[in-house]
Design a protein around this nucleic acid. Structure first.
Ligand SMILES: [Zn+2]
Ligand SMILES: [Zn+2]
Ligand SMILES: [Zn+2]
Ligand SMILES: [Zn+2]
Lengths: 134, 134
DNA sequence: CGGCTTATCGAGAACGGTTGTCAAAACCGT
DNA sequence: ACGGTTTTGACAACCGTTCTCGATAAGCCG
């Protein structure tokens, strides 16, 4: 049976709080920052759990897994700021269809797809420009 | 200056030989298999080099980096068999445009995108079906 | 409200892929 | 062939993640 622990709630809250994609370690750090005594392994376990249950999205960037709170059950993709992690959920029917069709055309079955866009959000763009041209 | 060593050539050849995405370790193993005495670190270094120079594509799957020989300079995406690693290069102008437009609409700049389709190729599909329904 | 069962937790060790270190070897323009 | 520089190889170090296992505490039943 699944149990409700304050640790699980803390991770859920911190994840929702983060607003964008964050690593398990970063989340753990921010929890400790806030006075929690939660263990790193627990953060890892909880995040994998949330991702399995569809309460969080995950993606790999530069060798580490990032997680983000996510509306359960809906299929969508992300527009992610490389600098600050801010994330926008995007739906793209045309891409869905294109993926399905392309896979079928080549005889592929059980097709899944990874579609993500990385860039600099408006704010980070401005900051970067200001920094490079003083 | 960049030098030509037999190790670099061996990696290039083995990579071309593989035909699909392979891990550095797998490539190293198959090289030793073939009698080469090349070191693992060299395989890693060479692969990162090739990827930087655009001679190889790379992607992350389940915590490890996979590489594939790749026509240099061209932007494209992949249709990858989860089982055997067979890869098909695909171009998708509509997706390129959609990605560019979506990023711009949300004020994102310097946008790059990841678009890959994973599935079972025709052969692996057949094998899987045969195995599950004897 | 106590016990009891058992999922979950914490601390640290272990793991696997990758990168760093540095002396020795290989490369290449001369 | 020579000498400055790059690259290699063996191994240690790294880093994110997972495993182990005794301790803890959630939820259930009486
Ligand atoms: Zn940003
Ligand atoms: Zn999709
Ligand atoms: Zn296949
Ligand atoms: Zn593209």
């Amino acid at each position: 049976m699944k149990r409700n622990t304050w640790q699980r709630e803390a991770v859920r809250a911190a994840l929702a709080d983060a607003g964008g994609f964050v690593s398990a370690q970063a989340l753990h750090a921010s929890l400790r920052e806030g006075g929690s005594t939660i263990a790193l392994a627990t953060v890892y376990r909880t995040l994998t759990g949330l991702a399995d249950e569809g309460e969080a999205d995950s993606l790999q960037q530069e060798g580490e897994l990032l997680y983000r709170a996510c509306t359960p059950g809906s299929h969508h993709h992300h527009l992610i700021c490389r600098r600050c992690g801010t994330t926008v959920e995007i739906e793209a029917q045309p891409v869905e269809e294109w993926a399905r069709r392309t896979a079928a055309e080549h005889g592929f079955t059980r097709a899944e797809h990874v579609v993500d866009i990385f860039g600099l959000c408006a704010r980070c763009t401005e900051l970067a420009d200001r920094a490079s041209r003083p």
